[in-house]
Design a protein around this nucleic acid. Structure first.
Lengths: 343, 343
DNA sequence: ACGGGCGCATGAAACGTTTCACAAGGTAGT
DNA sequence: ACTACCTTGTGAAACGTTTCATGCGCCCGT
């Protein structure tokens, strides 16, 4: 009921303002008897600290924000959960903001977060390159950690997964199964992750030799719908010109492709092999469990959060680190050796 | 750079503290020339409002929180997006908290949010019934809207979907297709949604007459894994005792069941029909597109947020409303008439 | 017995806003 | 010319904390 604060508690317990504050923040420096009295008063009054006042005084807050591209992509929800665990363990709070790939929305979020004087920021920026607003936050002393984005910048930490290697793994797997005609499905190519995964695949195939063809099918988005569409195009090809394997930049895409292929009457993996990327839970749960390139999603979030808190706690200049994880190929049932072509 | 506030801006613009505040909050009450000068000063200094101070003074904040059971369930991410849209349009910020079905975690979140003096709270509580902490928030004057939970309580608004009706729709659909032996897969039964959906199905079948059997397969969770497990059990039954249709409490479950049936060599819908619930995007994208009971997920979130803001804006006592949406059956390819039993 | 330390409690100052009562000057109405 | 009012700007108070210099009493060691 009591909407008021520490003052009322102090009066009730018959102590001074400062003492109540001490009970709250440095309980050991208060005599047990006094402490008891204060705690009782707090209970009776139903007193709850006022965070705004606390942080106004303290200057910094205990909340950390994470800005993601798409809250409904399981990849990000897992990253969020990882970060959440670390932040909460440290007594903080993680607020999740969704930019939905929209730079304007991202901007609004950053503005609000700046006003809130958040403790730190985890972000997968919508756009690459210089980011004025982000620079400002950094200048202001708010630590920023880039998530799932290699960092050209040196003035902040970053956490990422080696997408080039991921692409290599997928392509090598297909090549070793004997595929000679592979399609890469993904897009838009402006997205760094997509470009890297493709580059990795291309490099691996070149090294592997044997003139393996890597055809690119560019999609508009990394979504299930986009994948289904791409699959339709592929089904329409005459069998001779049809790839025997598909590597998707993303599991959502791969699920769409799987669906499209099924509709088009092609079986996975008998007629065509399929590799996804991210290894989201739905990949394993698909009707044909997907072979996919796994990323340590939760760990990505955890590490990012750790780096952030570390930086936030370090008073002095802190050495910015760039952690890169290794992806891992998870082989399931969507890949197999190509059938002999009818000769 | 300037870490300081309004004061410095005032000095630079050669005006008083109050004037700067007016420029920020009531620009019209300031002469254009003065306003210009102040705005310039703000720009040059890179001044950014301090939210803590503002809210300390104002008493209430502009952030609204939503506490969900599982951030990685697409159902909730859609609800969140709906709420987000409304809150952001109103100039507020939505913070997403994940209780992960854990009452303790939920409690910690609520404690923090109470300290933050959030403007309002959207929540799908982990447990039903009286909720001490929630009561406290309400007493404190923080509006609370229950999401996806019918409200026994009358001291707050709620937004829900009629789960009993949803159950009826699913069961009726199957009965009309000619199924005589149906299984309900879901659990734990303590979850209100699960119980309601089952109750609806049972009621509909009774009314439909013809002695249709409704068998219950209780699961431990509403997850893909749990569904796969349940499907294995069903596959193990001798054909004569095997249901010809399955109604799942949840799409995640249904996806798991679909996978389990496929592994077990049963085809959907030829051998067995399958109905899910929620109509998440992955349901439409499954290898066999799922018939499912759709809920207006985003609208659920939007409405909840609207109710909340409305309550927060109303000074006087406000009439608590309970909005109930109608679910809708979405028929896709996972349901069909049962094959004639081999006689 | 005396000074130094230590343990505990105090109260005022400061954090950066917003608000509010008020002042100064100008304009208009009578 | 006088009052009344409007427009624009002012500065102090208040919001609820935390922090810090200070004070008071007590014990201990010499």
């Amino acid at each position: 009921m009591a909407v008021t604060g520490i003052k009322e508690v102090a009066r009730r317990a018959g102590v001074s303002l400062g003492t109540v504050s001490n009970v709250l923040n440095r309980p050991d420096s208060v005599a047990p008897a006094t402490r008891r009295r204060v705690l009782d008063a707090i209970d009776e009054l139903g007193y709850v600290r006022n965070d705004s006042a606390r942080h106004l005084r303290a200057g910094s807050s205990r909340t950390v924000a994470i800005v993601v591209l798409d809250v409904s992509n399981p990849f990000f929800t897992d990253v969020v959960q990882g970060a959440e665990a670390v932040v909460e363990a440290a007594g903080g709070m993680l607020v999740v903001c969704n930019s939905g790939q929209d730079p304007a929305r991202e901007g609004r979020h950053l503005a609000t977060l700046e006003e809130q004087r958040v403790r730190g920021l985890l972000i997968t920026p919508v756009e690459n390159g210089r980011h004025e607003r982000l620079e400002r936050l950094v200048d202001r002393g708010i630590p920023v950690v880039l998530v799932d984005r290699g960092s050209g910048q040196l003035n902040r930490c970053s956490v990422a997964v080696d997408d080039v290697l991921g692409g290599r793994l997928a392509a090598t797997h297909l090549a070793e199964l004997g595929h000679r005609h592979i399609a890469f499905v993904g897009g838009p190519a402006s997205i760094a992750q997509v470009a890297d995964r493709h580059a990795g695949a291309a490099a691996a195939l070149t090294e592997h030799g044997g003139g393996i063809e890597l055809e690119v099918v560019e999609t508009k988005a990394l979504s299930v719908t986009a994948g289904r569409q791409a699959a339709e195009d592929i089904c329409a090809l005459p069998q001779a010109r049809r790839p025997t394997a598909i590597f998707c930049a993303n599991d959502l895409l791969a699920l769409g492709v799987l669906q499209g292929l099924t509709i088009g009457g092609l079986r996975v993996p008998e007629d065509i092999s399929l590799v996804g990327y991210d290894d989201i839970d739905f990949a394993a749960a698909a009707a044909v469990p997907l072979t996919s390139v796994g990323q340590p999603r939760e760990q990505l979030g955890r590490t990012a959060a750790q780096l952030l808190l570390e930086e936030a706690d370090t008073d002095a200049a802190h050495g910015h680190r760039h952690v890169v994880f290794q992806p891992q190929l998870v082989v399931r049932q969507s890949t197999a050796a190509p059938r002999r072509r009818t000769r």
